[in-house]
Design a protein around this nucleic acid. Structure first.
Lengths: 190, 190
DNA sequence: ACAGTAGGCTAACAACGTTAGCCACGCAAC
DNA sequence: GTTGCGTGGCTAACGTTGTTAGCCTACTGT
């Protein structure tokens, strides 16, 4: 859960060269898509050869894990910021959606497939997801809310909704349903 | 929307050999995972060489599309069946979840990444998703419900929930929220 | 002065999807 | 009956991918 301050998040420390590799990898992924994030293409942008990257990262997965780490930090940041506004759930999901749509390839990389938790900074994943628990108050409802948001973003990114769908309305309906559930969950104040 | 009868769905007609290829491909995918569904491995199980597969399918994507087609039909079937029971939304999502968990690799293949709609039987995708619209009554709420279910299944398959999460409860909370929304949507009967 | 490490390199490997080009069989038409 | 052609197999090969082995150079600490 940790404090809300962004700087409380532990970032992996990396050498200047390794940091640069991650930066370029991110540009490559975001601008050209996952199919273009190859060790050779990455090396070329760095002015070196592919095998040299292995002096800095164990393998490609390790580079991707560094990208995931930065995504978790960033999405956490925007979500904690959203919690400061009124209509918590609405602004939280708006921030989540916006991040996903602005960084489609990074979002997909970060949220699909198995994740090697042991290789992530301890507590990062938990910190990043905590805003849902803060907003929903009840843990299971929080996970359900996250699942809804994730499903929405993924299906929107993959263009799986019927053409012409009014997704703003879909988000609104989901938010309405969850907001009502949250209010019912805690019958007291707010 | 179409009729509820399963046989109203149009299946792509295929030669016996092509049908067999799809069958073996499915076994390979489901049993060994997506990384093992290679043209060479597929060919080996068929007793032929990889290039020969291209006499039956344009490329690997076409084989995968055939798998997606069968998945859409099957998940549609179990969902229409679920609609016949009381507690529509509960049984619908239970059926959806069960299908996803029983066919993790097929589910992932079918629901992630871009989908070439033009190459699918016309109306299949719509038919397959219609149960959500029937259950939720309001189209946007239906899409939200589907998104929730999809997000839940994906995150469960990818083991993205914190270890020890009680996912049954999470499903229940989501279902509760959406059920209430559906009842509020149509203030009249049921 | 010397050793060790950091960080580059080339060559190469296995596996992948895919294409080109060849060949054998079976069937229909003349 | 021979001809012709489509069907469905084959081998060889290409380009791309992640990755490893092994070498070399330059800087740094003792």
């Amino acid at each position: 859960m940790k404090a809300i301050t962004v700087d409380s998040v532990v970032r992996t420390t990396r050498s200047p060269r390794a940091t640069q590799i991650v930066e370029i990898a991110r540009e490559l992924l975001e601008r050209e898509g996952p199919g273009s994030l190859t060790m050779r293409a990455l090396a070329e942008r760095l002015g070196i050869r592919a095998p040299s990257i292995y002096k800095h990262f164990r393998n490609k997965e390790a580079v991707e894990l560094a990208l995931i780490e930065s995504a978790l930090i960033e999405v956490g940041e925007v979500m904690y910021a959203a919690l400061a506004e009124p209509e918590r759930i609405t602004s939280l999901l708006a921030a989540y959606r916006a991040y996903g749509l602005e960084h489609p390839n990074l979002y997909r990389l970060s949220t699909t497939g198995a994740l090697d938790r042991r290789s992530l900074p301890k507590g990062l994943e938990e910190w990043s997801g905590a805003p849902f628990f803060i907003a929903a108050k009840e843990p299971h409802l929080a996970q359900a809310l996250w699942s809804f948001a994730h499903g929405m973003v993924m299906l929107e990114l993959d263009q799986r909704y019927p053409p012409g769908s009014e997704l703003d309305k879909t988000w609104r309906e989901g938010i309405k349903a969850f907001s009502a559930a949250v209010h019912q969950e805690v019958p007291a104040h707010e």
